[in-house]
């Protein structure tokens, strides 16, 4: 039921937006969203934008995970070197 792919707002007419998902354009209601702006990414569910995607948080999560794994690898190497 959920479309997990973020859609980009390309046009706003009152409470209706046109959103783009990888080249496919659909209409989406903005009734459940505060302060939508053109260019923002939103999550769409059953024809309604239900939230914006926080770009900073998206990038931060990826970076955090890379850091955790990098620390892990460094640890691995250290262990191997000691042996």
């Amino acid at each position: 039921m959920c479309l997990a792919v973020p859609s980009r707002i390309i046009e706003i007419n009152d409470t209706i937006a046109r959103v783009d998902v990888d080249g496919v354009v659909r209409e989406t209601s903005l009734m459940l969203l505060d302060d939508p702006k053109i260019g923002e990414y939103v999550i769409v569910h059953a024809g309604f934008a239900i939230n914006k995607v926080d770009e900073k948080a998206a990038l931060q999560t990826l970076q955090d995970m890379r850091n955790i794994l990098a620390a892990e690898n460094a640890g691995d190497n250290g262990l191997i070197n000691q042996q």
Partner: peptide, 18 residues
């Protein structure tokens, strides 16, 4: 246009690491 936050979250090397 790429699929925002989809490709990054399907990154194979990150997945293997996890």
């Amino acid at each position: 246009m790429s699929l925002k936050y989809i490709e990054e979250y399907r990154d194979a090397s990150l997945a293997r690491g996890l």
